[in-house]
Simulated scan of single mutants.
Amino acid sequence: MPELPEVETVRLGLEPVLVGGTFSSVTTNRADLRFPFPPNFSRRLRGARVTELERRAKYLIAHLSTGEALVMHLGMTGRFHVHRAGAARAQLLGEYENSVPADDKHLHALFEMAGGAKVAYFDPRRFGYMLLIPETELPDHALMRGLGVEPLTEALNAAYLANRAAGRKSDLKAFLLDQRIVAGLGNIYVCEALFRAGLKPSRRASILAGRGGRPTEHAMRLVAEIKAVLAEAVAAGGSTLRDYRHADGASGSFQSAFQVYGREGEPCVRPGCRGTVQRSIQGGRSSFYCPVCQR
């Protein structure tokens, strides 16, 4: 499942082609993905200009001149191929680890732009989906209204985290994965941020709040590390994608920078620490941590 940095990476690849462009033709090759395509999907998009392409949590949202928003979720295996006008071949925006090669039987939607560019959506497992939602209804839509703050914005700060953590009995891992608190954070980057902050995943989230709900040093350090690890992952093209090509053609991957995730049984990389990375199961997901330097 792609996490926030991977979705942001795809957004950055789509933005130069979509924003400012107009859909001249939209073709769907089946009636549904995870959910049915919206009624009159192709007709409603034809002639619409994309005014902005944003990411909200793990959703891509194309704001349209028609007053609607095209909301896209990649699911587990959704990916886009971008063929710019005059280019010799398509640009692949992400190929997932262990995914099957893309072929025409997995091509479910084709967006043709007025300038000649084409954006093809492939999805072998069809867990992704696309919706058309009126802009006025978007903030209160079921998919959006419960989402927490974006972790790469100023809205995520130590005071906010302390306020949400005060008095909580849940552990840090579950607290950070709660999309109602921080939108878009996933298992990989929570493990990495907690390691960098020196905090054990199983500690109570309430350690982030002190007397009167004031943020503790733990909260300040954790916020800084969440932002740092996500920014680094975005710059590297994410980690659940393989063979990703940035808009300038350069490849990148964050897997090589993992400090704990997937490193069970390996020595801790923190200088001076003699611990060994361990794995535990929390809420049905693997947590990787160092039992010596994460407390």
Rank of each mutant, 00 (worst) to 15 (best):
L4A: 09
V7H: 11
T9V: 01
E15M: 06
F23Q: 07
D32V: 01
P38D: 12
F41R: 09
R43Y: 00
L45I: 02
T51L: 09
A57W: 02
L60A: 10
I61Y: 00
A62D: 09
T66F: 01
T66M: 03
G67R: 08
R84F: 00
A85E: 15
A87T: 04
Y96G: 15
N98C: 04
V100C: 11
A102W: 03
F111G: 10
E112A: 13
A114K: 10
G115V: 00
G116D: 10
G116P: 01
K118A: 09
A120H: 08
L132R: 12
L132H: 08
R145Y: 06
L156D: 09
A158K: 03
A165R: 12
D171N: 14
L172N: 11
K173N: 15
D178R: 08
V182K: 12
V182H: 08
E192N: 11
F195Y: 14
L199G: 03
S202Y: 00
R204F: 14
L208C: 08
G210N: 08
G213V: 03
E217T: 11
A224I: 00
A228C: 02
A231N: 12
G237T: 04
S239A: 09
L241C: 08
D243P: 01
S251T: 11
G265C: 09
C268L: 06
C268A: 12
V269G: 13
P271Q: 15
C273A: 06
G275L: 05
V277G: 13
I281W: 07
Y289A: 13
